[in-house]
């Protein structure tokens, strides 16, 4: 396996993850090595239970590995405290989930602003950044709508705006199109691809739809808690 850059942004070495204890223990990851360079667009594929979501949660600092090392930009994440991992999420990572995970009964603008509140931004800063992010995902004019008043595609775009408002280094998308029809799926994927291409945001996306994986330039396939294959697509392919 060759790395295109000498120091990858994300470097996993021998990552294992075991859930439960004793006879009920289940090993979701059995030694995963993975490097992701800055600016890459990686699709993570694999059947259910292959460990792809677990790997994603570990990369997203939502979960910590049972063993192995995870370096983010040279920092050993596995040694960080819960609080330090939260700060890393806050400052460098953006999340998009399959279920959108917007706050109910809360306007699109307030949803998008949420990460900035935790960063301690001023009200005017938040509003202008929130509006800009909504505009970027094509939802200018929808600021005051609550999730219940938005379609699935629009909700996912609000979630995307929320993920990028902090200008993260890495966007982690867990089945972002899993709940969407094919047309809106493509709209959302176009947006994600544009973020990767135009803003240099590194994208890691879990999906099991080959159509969506085609947007990525690299496809990592998980089987049974291990990386089975790692393909880089040619630029002309």
């Amino acid at each position: 396996m060759k790395s295109p850059e000498p120091t990858p942004l994300i470097r996993l070495r021998g990552i294992t993850k075991t859930f439960g204890e004793g006879s009920a223990a289940f090993q979701a990851l059995k030694g995963v090595d993975l490097d992701v360079a800055k600016g890459e667009f990686v699709a993570i594929m694999g059947p259910s239970g292959s460990g792809k979501s677990t790997a994603m949660n570990i990369i997203g600092c939502l979960d910590s590995p049972s063993s192995g090392t995870y370096e983010y930009h040279g920092t050993h994440v596995e040694k960080l405290s819960r609080r330090q991992r939260a700060l890393l999420r806050r400052n460098f990572l953006g999340f998009v989930f399959q279920g959108f995970n917007l706050l109910a009964r809360t306007s699109a603008l307030e949803n998008v602003e949420l990460p900035l509140i935790y960063r301690g931004a001023s009200t005017s800063e938040r509003h202008s950044a929130g509006r800009a992010a909504l505009e970027q995902v094509g939802l200018a004019g929808w600021e005051d709508h609550t999730p219940a008043e938005l379609s699935g595609g629009q909700q996912q775009r609000v979630a995307l705006a929320r993920a990028i408002i902090t200008q993260p280094s890495v966007l982690l998308a867990d089945e972002p199109t899993g709940n969407l029809d094919s047309r809106t799926s493509r709209e959302v994927m176009d947006l994600i691809a544009a973020l990767n291409r135009d803003h240099g945001i590194t994208v890691l996306m879990v999906t099991h739809e080959p159509d969506m994986a085609d947007y990525a330039r690299r496809i990592v396939r998980f089987v049974d808690g291990q990386v089975e294959s790692d393909h880089r697509r040619q630029e002309n392919g």
């Binding site: 997203g60 609080r83 999420r89 806050r90 400052n91 706050l103 935790y118 929320r162």
Partner: peptide, 16 residues
Amino acid sequence: TREIGIRLAIGALEGE
């Protein structure tokens, strides 16, 4: 609970 999960995921600290 879900709302708390969202907040934690997007960077809220336990203290917050």
